[in-house]
Design a protein around this nucleic acid. Structure first.
Lengths: 346, 346
DNA sequence: GTTGGAAACGTAACCGATAACGATTGCAAT
DNA sequence: ATTGCAATCGTTATCGGTTACGTTTCCAAC
């Protein structure tokens, strides 16, 4: 079959085998009620024509397709890790996976694209979907599991324990002696972003360190968004001795800005991220961060979705996974302990 | 709309708007022949019900879907890099991307699964597909571009210049003074594997170094396959002073075996890989390898496929991308320099 | 008043596969 | 010979959306 030929359909097989499409369907699906000789006929016709059933036609007719969907907008290492977990959870499960990634055609309008794609798929093609870090609450006619949902979402979801992770980071920094700790927040609509910021606040409050609102920059998880915020924080005369960024992507940009400004990390500035993406271990210096096992997020989400689809799910509709502080080279005690008039700017 | 509700279909919209489904279809697709007032009616009904057209139903009826497919079996860093390239090429193009990943249900039978999935998708769902490192030649009723095809494939494809890359590696090793150079081959059905081996042979032949067939181990690109081969090569009394593995994954295993046998790299043994996957830069010592820009492979494949689908492709049906030797810490001149004139064994 | 023609809209036939249902056949038990 | 039951297989409605085609409506031109 070269390009341009019409695809082989079930009726082609039926014609060649001299039976009806119904019989072909029964043979293909291994149903009861076909004589051995007919089966042989049909099989040989299928073989000769190289027939494969159309996923689309099957989906339209059947309710179950044994295909699960995953909807994502980006392909950063975060997503790649999640995917590995999803694939492993689905391996040998009988479910195939379709990943739907949009081409960002609509630009700004693309907020809410997850919902559009989800509806387009879930009506027929997939038995259920995983949605990664959506822009808003999602709804679907088939089961959905969200990884990193928006705040106050009621949809089944899987999230890391962002509150505990962020709290631990700040406690660690406080323990090192830092008092002026900057924070670069993530996209505030996401529960993860909110929890990480809340953890930052609580840890400071519990330690009795007065919160300085001007030390908080409003990023959106996009690494680029951290650059001007980091610059603003680090060019102040009373710059913080540590910066905690709500994602590794943003934290890595903070490292770049610091290098650009001639600041030594961790000597002049400690930097902490969140996520533990592979790149963080390779940064110079290696980034201290919170591991949230994106692999595990994907694995659990897939397992949960699979069970929801088959109707076997017994657990809670919201899963929270533990986090782990990973201390590397980007953090150290502050050089000079709390002096308002430290260095002259270069 | 919670889980379990039936999806909203076009006839739901039609009923609410008091028109036929044909009219709704015309409105949705912006076709000519609907009065302004009817359009408003339909639009409002769509809005109220939250209707989205079903990708499946549309695909079944129409030939064009503006969706391209990518079929892959694994999700290693190789694939992830390729994907980034594909996504970037498709960004803003109007094409969406569906990645089909199988769950390895059939085990051994899964050889040739690419062809099955391809046929299942291309009949209807997608306008064209990219296939990554297939097991055999593929065919489809819609355009296909293969990344790393099998030998003698006639399907449009994108490949790195494996011959030049491998030749350069061996010339580099020869230039360092190595004469006994081992080779661990990849899955021989793939054109890439064959070219890399051919490059190895040619470079040796051109330098007048007699080829020793016992220095060639037959791997299959699976990292594990390299372990016994590396052990066999390195436990010989006349072991090679350098090993060139046809992929980074296998080369990293060679490093492990060398360490296990107490050999110093690069002192006692030089090791070179091929691919330049991210992990190679982190190995200890960092791996000398050939960069084949997997991102670029994906980008070019997507661009080519897009043009094939729209019928605008003018270029050749086989694209070869340049490679680049990346020298890192795993290579050095052989410790014991034999008599410069003799090319015989130690 | 009639006609022509285009605009507006509905009807029904698809697309490929599935499954409920009916029809036919074979075979054994009565 | 007749009945009963299961095995076997074809017919047809159906999934949701698209489109060729036919019908109706409306308005301008003759």
């Amino acid at each position: 079959m070269a390009d341009g030929d019409a695809p082989v359909t079930m009726s082609d097989v039926a014609r060649l085998a001299g039976v009806s499409t119904a019989t072909v369907s029964r043979v293909v699906n291994g149903r009861y009620g076909v004589s051995a000789s007919t089966i042989a006929q049909v099989r040989s016709a299928i073989e000769r024509l190289g027939y494969e059933s159309s996923l689309v036609a099957t989906s339209l007719r059947r309710s179950r397709t044994n295909v699960l969907g995953l909807v994502t907008h980006s392909f950063q290492s975060y997503t790649a890790e999640v995917l590995k977990g999803v694939m492993d959870a689905l391996s040998q499960s009988g479910f195939d996976l379709i990943i739907y990634a949009n081409s960002d055609l609509y630009g700004k309008y693309s907020e809410g694209w997850e919902q559009r794609h989800l509806t387009r798929l879930s009506g027929t093609l997939t038995d259920g979907c995983i949605v990664v870090t959506p822009w808003g609450e999602v709804r679907s006619s088939t089961p959905v599991v969200v990884i990193d949902p928006v705040r106050d979402s009621t949809v089944p979801s899987v999230t890391a324990d962002n509150l505990a992770g962020a709290t631990q980071v700040v406690e660690y920094l406080l323990g090192l002696g830092h008092r002026r700790i900057g924070f670069i927040a993530g996209r505030s609509s996401l529960a993860a972003a909110w929890s990480r910021e809340e953890g930052y606040r609580r840890a400071l409050a519990e330690a009795g360190v007065p919160a300085d609102p001007t030390l908080v920059g409003r990023g959106d998880f996009n690494p680029e968004s951290a650059i001007p915020l980091a610059r603003a924080l680090l060019e102040r005369p009373d710059r913080p001795t540590a910066i905690f960024a709500a994602s590794d992507g943003m934290a890595l940009k903070v490292l770049e800005v610091a290098k650009e400004l001639g600041l030594d990390v961790p000597g002049d500035l400690s930097v902490v991220g969140f996520d533990n993406i592979p790149e963080s271990a390779l940064a110079e210096p290696a980034l201290t961060t919170v591991d949230q096992s994106m692999y595990q997020l994907g694995y659990e989400a897939a397992h949960m979705l699979k069970s929801l689809v088959t109707g076997e799910w017994e657990g809670p509709s919201r899963i929270t996974l533990p986090t782990r502080l990973v201390v590397r080279g980007s953090t150290a005690p502050p050089k000079i302990t709390e002096s308002p008039e430290t260095t002259a700017e270069a």
